[in-house]
């Protein structure tokens, strides 16, 4: 089953073509890495897929809903986590989960059970009543992920989720991603860590608004005759003519 279907998706701001006719599909339960240099168009593409920005042309379906015609349905069926973890610092751990549960319309009788399960999975049951602001960064990050998938979305969008966290926490976070994918949640992730690109089932690389490469890390390495994803990224991103300079 396809969870994302993008067809000739394009977004223009005036004369500027931020996203230039991209087409790709993502399968259920897949971990899909969305790479590109700053300014390549990743954020704009992601905003369209999340129903936050209307495409100038082309079409897309996310979680079975049309991103242009049914953006509210799209929003209800996806999860989103950015680098600035959207947690309420002055609420307790359980209150954050309770709030998101309510926003996404999960029946009250189910929420407590789900909170219990989420905290057990993170191994932080004892922190249930702790204010989020006093949690270590690594825990906040895991909690932010749990809130993003609290309503069991079909797909979760992760925008640079591991920026700035320590090497151990970064790896533990990826193990959470694997578990979510095993449960059938599709994961769409951007990162600037090229070692993390290797953990994805498939990876796309955007250059100047276009998808210039898309395949499994293994096949990409073959195709570009490269030792690792870092080399591929450099080969492709160096070709960029617009952007960030």
């Amino acid at each position: 089953m396809k969870v994302i279907e993008a067809e000739n998706l394009t977004k223009k701001f005036g004369q500027f073509v931020a996203v230039d006719n991209i087409s790709f599909q993502v399968e259920k339960g897949e971990i899909f890495g969305f790479l590109g240099a700053n300014g390549a168009g990743k954020t704009t593409a992601m905003r369209m897929l999340c129903g936050l920005s209307k495409p100038t042309s082309g079409q897309g379906k996310v979680a079975g809903f049309d991103i242009e015609q049914q953006p509210e349905k799209v929003k209800a069926n996806i999860g989103y986590m950015s680098q600035k973890f959207a947690l309420y610092e002055d609420l307790r751990v359980w209150e954050n989960l309770r709030l998101y549960g309510g926003i996404y319309g999960i029946p009250s009788r189910e929420i407590n059970e789900k909170i219990h399960a989420a905290l057990a999975q993170l191994g932080i049951e004892n922190e249930k009543d702790t204010m989020v602001k006093s949690l270590p960064l690594g825990w906040k990050q895991k909690l932010a992920f749990s809130t993003a998938i609290f309503h069991d979305p079909k797909i979760v969008f992760l925008d640079e989720p591991t920026g700035g966290v320590d090497p151990l926490a970064r790896r533990q976070f990826w193990e959470l991603i694997y578990e979510a994918a095993d449960r059938g949640i599709t994961v769409f992730v951007t990162t600037h860590y090229m070692d993390e690109a290797e953990y994805c089932n498939r990876v796309s690389v955007m250059v100047d608004g276009k998808i210039e490469a898309l395949d499994s890390p293994k096949n990409l390495k073959k195709q570009f005759d490269a030792k690792n994803m870092d080399q591929i990224f450099h080969q492709l991103a160096r070709k960029a003519t617009r952007g960030n300079n």
């Binding site: 700053n38 600037h192 090229m194 991103a237």
Partner: peptide, 10 residues
């Protein structure tokens, strides 16, 4: 270089 892509970081 936080949040900067690998090419720009280099």
């Amino acid at each position: 270089t936080t949040g900067v892509d690998p090419v720009s970081r280099k």
